[in-house]
């Protein structure tokens, strides 16, 4: 069955942006780094497994010519998990790779973050450090790449 694209939303919904930013920071961390980031919240909060970590595939799409119609490029391994804390809040994760531990940790952080009493602490203790590390790594890539930028100069011919 060809996949039907989700219907376009009438106006861009930005209400999920903070949660998307959280999920991006978690997804870009290595499993070990995420485990370490959770340390300030140890022991892990009591939780019920709604959907135990499961590894599967997501077919990555590109666009023809970069901006045209979509096509299927190839798959990527993704692990997902859903947990429910004792307060009833459900946390979800979808992270690239096969680390079940990372998916569980990401779902727990998502659940903790949704508790208004903990949102700020999660942002400060987990998300901000991960995001700034990721930014620093990107800045290094940009700076190293910038050093390989070509400076053209024109050779002036001797005659005339």
């Amino acid at each position: 069955m060809p996949h039907q694209a989700p219907p376009p939303s009438a106006s861009p919904d930005t209400s999920n942006e903070p949660r998307r930013r959280l999920m991006a920071a978690l997804a870009n961390a290595t499993p070990d780094r995420l485990a370490a980031a959770l340390a300030p919240f140890a022991p892990l909060p009591a939780h019920e497994m709604v959907r135990a970590p499961e590894t599967g595939l997501v077919m990555v799409r590109g666009r023809m010519g970069g901006t045209g119609a979509p096509f299927n490029l190839g798959e990527v391994t993704v692990t997902r998990c859903v947990v429910r804390l004792e307060n009833g809040v459900a946390g979800s994760s979808y992270v690239m790779g096969r680390s079940k531990q990372k998916a569980l940790h990401a779902a727990l952080v998502d659940a903790l973050w949704q508790n208004p009493a903990l949102t700020e602490a999660v942002e400060r203790e987990i998300i901000a450090p991960l995001a700034s590390e990721a930014e620093a790594a990107d800045a290094t890539v940009r700076a190293e790449t910038a050093a390989t930028k070509v400076d053209f100069f024109t050779m002036v011919r001797g005659d005339d």
């Binding site: 595939l57 077919m59 799409r61 901006t67 798959e75």
Partner: peptide, 21 residues
């Protein structure tokens, strides 16, 4: 890959927003 379930399809990646190396 045939042993894994398929969760679905990604949004098309935006190569214009690439972290260029």
């Amino acid at each position: 890959r045939t042993t894994l379930p398929r969760f679905g399809y990604s949004e098309p990646v935006d190569t214009g927003a690439m972290l260029v190396e």
